[in-house]
Design a protein around this nucleic acid. Structure first.
Lengths: 157, 157
DNA sequence: AGCTAAGTCGATTTAATCGATAGACTGTGC
DNA sequence: GCACAGTCTATCGATTAAATCGACTTAGCT
């Protein structure tokens, strides 16, 4: 399950993506727009900045902004920064491999095989989806929704 | 990330799958074979039993055993019992839906759309993989490995 | 019946993590 | 130099994860 921290991070990143090219955005602005506790958001943005996803400017007229265009920032990158590895288990992580202490033989571990499949499936989605992709997808949903307003909610399909 | 609890649960279930039809297996046996803290394993097995995955027998000659054939128990079921929902976020869970308190409009939430894809991909794998599948996969890996022993380890591909 | 094997159950401990907040510090622009 | 806005460090309470202890109950055996 995604932590609040990560959800906040994604929301904030999406705001900055939408505002990309318009100059810095205040922490307080983001906090208010997305209903995120101000002080908590500070920490999150700081971390994303230190990881190179965001940049910031101090003083008057300062704030946060994306360090790269929205089409160059993937959800996978952000989630790895805030949640840690995408892999459900350390021994199948590509970027943060850790051996299972008690594992006899990694090559023949059934759990590992299945978890590798899960990791690959998740990574395939999250590493190929950029902030720009998400914005676009939302936009087409919004405009498309007004044309067929009473469609069955997808969440109960 | 998978908790130890879930990893232990999967390991134990695989032992019971391998031993299926051979009568009850002692908690202590499973604990020793898989290097799981005995007392902790008790709790886990008990939970899986109360959920209907396992059955148990008390007294001499007692122990734990699968309640159904290994081909009828999926990893998804076990993981839901020990970890909770497979979904990365409550609002995309099929069996344990919970609304995001602060969500304006679920239908147009970009994060939700992507997380739904992730959930579906994970569930597709875990709900279609049974204990029998895992045992079989391990076995073919073991026998296959001796025929081409120096193949590049898949984990570094 | 009585002994023993084995699972059951409840309480507790310890350490780690999560979500959140406070306050002092640093750099920027005017 | 003053106000603005991000930076950094510390802390706090609540929850959870992982593990452990001890007492209890049930089943089989003789």
């Amino acid at each position: 399950m995604l932590s609040h921290k990560s959800k906040y991070a994604l929301k904030a990143a999406l705001v900055l993506a939408k505002e990309y090219g318009q100059g810095p955005v205040l922490i307080s602005d983001i906090a208010q727009r997305e209903a995120i506790p101000r002080k908590f958001l500070e920490l999150i943005l700081l971390e994303l900045r230190n990881r190179g996803v965001l940049q910031s400017k101090k003083g008057k007229g300062g704030g946060y902004f994306l360090g790269r265009p929205p089409s160059k920032v993937t959800l996978g990158e952000i989630l790895r920064d805030t949640e840690g590895p995408l892999a459900p288990i350390g021994c199948v992580s590509q970027f943060a491999y850790v051996r299972c202490e008690d594992c006899r033989d990694e090559r023949t571990c059934g759990i590992r095989m299945v978890m590798k499949d899960v990791r690959d499936a998740t990574a395939r989605i999250l590493d190929s989806t950029t902030l720009a992709d998400v914005l676009k997808r939302v936009e087409t949903t919004v405009s498309g929704a007004s044309q067929r307003p009473h469609k069955l909610p997808a969440e109960f399909a």
